[in-house]
Amino acid sequence: MLKAENITVSFGRREVLHDVSFAAKPGALTAIVGPNGSGKTTLLKAMIGEVAHGGTVRLNDVDIARAKPWELAAMRGVLPQATPLAFPFTVAEVVRLGLMNGTSGGKTQLVPAALARVGLGGYAARYYQELSGGEQQRVQLARVLTQVWEPTQDGAPRWLFLDEPVSALDIGHQLLVMQIARDFADAGGGVVAVMHDLNLTAMYADEVALISDGRVLAQGASEAVFTDDLLSKAYHCRVQVNTTPRSGTFLLPHVAQAGAA
């Protein structure tokens, strides 16, 4: 269980998150959506201890403010939006960094397995710095996967925190990465992902938290959150939610003419 309560974050004098509470269950993919600058990435960063915040965050009943980095690393992996690298590591060497925390320790066979999982088999000896942005992002995902390879450990769920995991990817790889997150959740792990693409979110997420202006506008099953009214209110434009009869998932075409609310 991930429980964030009364999270407040300020940058300088400007408060960007106002008393936000958020929860995510293991075995589910929980997406955080909202317009640019709404505070969704800040909320994620507060929950992984990356920005100073008021309130408490408990992950598997551990107060993350008191946990040691290696204790947290054994429980959860974090995929940042982009990771520039200072030195000429090969792809395999970057992924191997995920084995450092000791829980996956020394299992070098995870490296090619993780690379194959993200569709980068055969890339092991390439230089990370020479890859495209989307490829780099998948290398980082492979690194995070090696860190928390088993979605549960001794009955306790492990967690993936993904910050816009598909933002640099083509549609094929978007589906691949979302499916990896889906599988992780289906196997008992917890996934929290900041998402921009509402269609992908609708297709893969169990739960959605809709953030707007530093507040949670709605949180719940995606069918309950993805309504014309809520989305239009959050994104300040007219949005229409449709369902396709074939798959049951719903699509959100950009129907609105600008300003015609």
């Binding site: 992984i48 201890g49 990356e50 040691k68 980095p69 290696w70 947290l72 690393a73 054994a74 959860r76 992996g77 974090v78 940042p80 990771t83 520039p84 690298l85 200072a86 030195f87 590591f89 970057v94 960094l97 995920g98 450092m100 925390n101 000791g102 860190q147």
Partner: peptide, 21 residues
């Protein structure tokens, strides 16, 4: 040595990998 390897990915990523930055 391990810590510096982690830092190659940045302080935040190093910390998430279990490094006492």
């Amino acid at each position: 040595a391990r810590g510096l390897n982690g830092l190659a990915l940045g302080e935040a990523a190093a910390s998430h990998m279990g490094i006492d930055v």
